[in-house]
Amino acid sequence: MIPLSGPDITQREKDLVMEVLDSGILGLGPKMKQFEQMMAEYVGVKHAISCNSGTSGLHMLIAAMGIGEGDEVITTSFSFVASANCILFERAVPVFVDIDEKTYNLDVTQIEAKITPKTKAILPVHVFGQPANMDEIRALAKKHNLWVIEDSCEAIGGEWNGERVGGLGDAGVFAFYPNKQMTTGEGGIIVTNNDEIAELCHSIRNQGRGEDGLWLSHVRLGYNFRMDELSAALGVAQLERIDEILAKRDAVAKMYSEKLKDVAEVILPHVEDNVKMSWFVYVIRFAEDVDRDLVMERLSKRGVGCRPYFTPIHLQPFYVERFGYKRGDFPVTERVADKTLAIPFFNNLTEAQVDEVVAAIKEEIANAKEPAAL
């Protein structure tokens, strides 16, 4: 079995976790503060507020920005469902925009047509670790007085024109689930230069407690979105190694790109010239005459981990039922999503494993041509 993903844990991570266990301080302790300071410095922002997931981080930002019932937030359907759900949590409405067929990010040329008097924010997702066109997004936001929330959950270390993502909008969020570039087990972090947003998020994640720190004093509606000390310890160790981690993933991506470049039925990931890609997953796209689902089924039977990335949010049963979406509403998103497949990708994937995956893909493509193409 070659899994789809896997964390990269060394003795350093184990040592810091044991340090926390030995300290007896398992929550709201020094490791959380250390991790937050390190992350703020890494991204180049004033504030970092850790939390228990990237989803929670996005939810807190929607709440902290005062986005509520009936408000609209422009975002993408080609993403994990949390980037739209976070809007619904506050009874606002996600407004989807189709994607660019090369980068799979928001098509910035379609954003302005979706802006209405109810629009409060633009929420771009740096899909698969490729930064979205932040110049155009920030210009539109400035023109229409909108917030910009960066969903950077898949993109730690990614850069747009030499600037690290997360710090390019009003606030951003990173996530550290075990399939991400770096992991804290479960966890996420908000980054921002906005003092008010930071203060509100500190409070919201901690049951709405005020900045005075009084334990049973609650000044607003809040949640238990805190990151624990064990997770923060993992974060410290992983962030210490982030350059090594990203380099490992870049090397694996280059191996795949080299070994798959001559496979006519495979469209390789496209990376824009002005970005630094942070490889979250390696997603290939099949030609129109290849049955992606059949390839996926056959690869899985051979023990090769794979998964469709992404199934469009607007076609998820809950969104179809609630909003009446149907196929054809976002044709580029749907065309891409029908043919994309994430293949095994993690820091310590070996060249022998890459060769095995590539050989399997080549063999199964031949068995998965659409009937009309035979």
Rank of each mutant, 00 (worst) to 15 (best):
V125A: 08
R138S: 13
I242C: 04
G210L: 10
L230H: 04
E154F: 15
N193K: 14
L221S: 11
G188D: 02
K118E: 02
G185S: 10
H218D: 01
K143R: 13
H144C: 02
L146N: 01
S231A: 15
E159L: 13
V219Q: 11
K143S: 01
G185D: 00
H144S: 01
S217A: 09
L234A: 09
W160E: 01
R205A: 06
Q207K: 13
G213F: 12
L230Y: 07
K118R: 15
T192R: 09
P117S: 05
K248N: 13
H202C: 07
C201W: 04
G129Y: 06
R209C: 03
K118H: 14
K248A: 07
F128N: 05
Y177M: 14
D151H: 09
L168P: 00
W215V: 07
K120A: 05
N206I: 08
A121H: 04
R220I: 07
A139L: 06
G188R: 15
I197K: 11
M182H: 06
Q238D: 02
K142S: 04
R220Y: 04
A139S: 11
G166K: 13
I242Q: 05
G222W: 14
E258H: 13
P117R: 13
L221C: 07
A232C: 10
E229F: 10
H144F: 10
K248C: 08
A247P: 02
D195R: 15
C153F: 05
I190T: 06
R205S: 02
G169L: 05
I122C: 03
V165N: 00
A132T: 09
R226C: 10
K143A: 06
H202D: 01
E150R: 09
L200R: 15
N193W: 03
G169E: 00
I122Y: 00
N194M: 11
D250P: 00
Y177V: 12
Y256V: 07
L216G: 02
H144G: 00
G222P: 00
N206Y: 11
A141V: 08
D170P: 02
S152R: 14
L140V: 10
M134F: 15
T119R: 06
N193R: 14
A253G: 07
I242D: 01
V165A: 10
E229A: 05
E258W: 04
T119P: 00
